[in-house]
């Protein structure tokens, strides 16, 4: 009997918290279909007009493209640099390697706002113009620690012998890295890459402070917010959410599902 009570209480509590977690998202998606100008109750009826408005909005579409490019390019750079550094620190004995690891991880412990402000003061002082490039530089700074940490932690010693075998068969260092080490670490490299893409894609404060004319999607959405509650904001927000969930579902079913079994 008591067990029954605690079980019911548990499920009730879980239901409550799940409700709290999903309430804003449900409201966001529901009122993106609002047939009317205010995304609040009452729900007037189903309409796709706000999605049409989103796709017709040149600035939003340009920002979407910019976000995509910045996310992909900055994540590629972060993964490449992270992989090389992880390889060097895991496979060679270098002086001060603990210090080097600490230095590479350090940006993780600092607020994005401070990283952005530091870069902004330098760029301002040297008169470097803000652009998508400066945003990308900032995003590599925040994603490099992540990529390095993920790839470094998966570089177990059990891979060393396979690399040694390749070297004995007279493969060059670059060949070992590209043909042996990287394929063995592919799951964690991909995980680092996709995580870094989502972080860059969604990042606001660095993109806001380090861009000027060409902006990324979160910055463009930010300027939409000035018009107050608007179903168009709901529509673009819902779109971003659905795309992220779709990507996540694909990753879960292919990449992570496979590594778990192997």
């Amino acid at each position: 009997m008591r067990d029954m009570m605690t079980r019911i209480a548990s499920y009730a509590y879980a239901g409550l918290i799940y409700g709290f977690i999903f309430l804003p998202v449900a409201v966001l998606v529901l009122f993106s279909f609002q047939d009317g100008r205010l995304p609040v109750p009452p729900f007037n009826g189903f309409s796709l007009q706000w999605y049409e408005a989103v796709f017709a909005d040149r600035k939003l579409m340009a920002a979407l493209g910019n976000s995509f490019i910045v996310a992909i390019v900055s994540s590629l750079i972060a993964c490449l640099l992270g992989f090389l550094a992880a390889y060097a620190l895991a496979r060679y004995k270098l002086p001060g390697s603990a210090l080097q690891r600490g230095l590479l991880i350090a940006p993780m412990t600092v607020s994005y706002l401070i990283i952005a402000l530091g870069l902004l003061t330098v760029l301002n002082t040297f008169g470097i113009r803000l652009s998508l490039w400066t945003v990308g530089i900032g995003h590599v700074v925040i994603n490099l620690p992540l990529c390095f940490a993920i790839i470094y932690s998966s570089m177990g010693d059990h891979h060393i012998n396979i690399e040694r075998a390749a070297r004995d068969l007279s493969a060059s260092d670059i060949k070992v890295m590209v043909l042996v080490t990287a394929p063995m670490l592919m799951p964690s490299i991909l995980a680092a890459f996709f995580l870094s893409v989502t972080f860059s894609w969604d990042e606001f404060i660095i993109a806001f402070l380090l861009s000027r004319f060409d902006v990324t999607l979160p910055v463009e959405i930010w300027s939409l917010l000035r018009s107050g509650l608007n179903p168009k904001t709901n529509a673009i927000g819902s779109l971003v959410f659905l795309v992220s969930v779709a990507v996540l579902a694909v990753l879960e079913l292919t990449l992570f599902g496979r590594t778990k079994k192997s």
């Binding site: 640099l81 270098l94 530091g118 700074v141």
Partner: peptide
Amino acid sequence: ERRKAWGFVAPALLWTIAFFVLPFLFM
């Protein structure tokens, strides 16, 4: 070997120093 290892780790270190450590000190 050591020179090679420095070559691999240098890009990441330089990036972090140029775009994180120095800007922070400057700030």
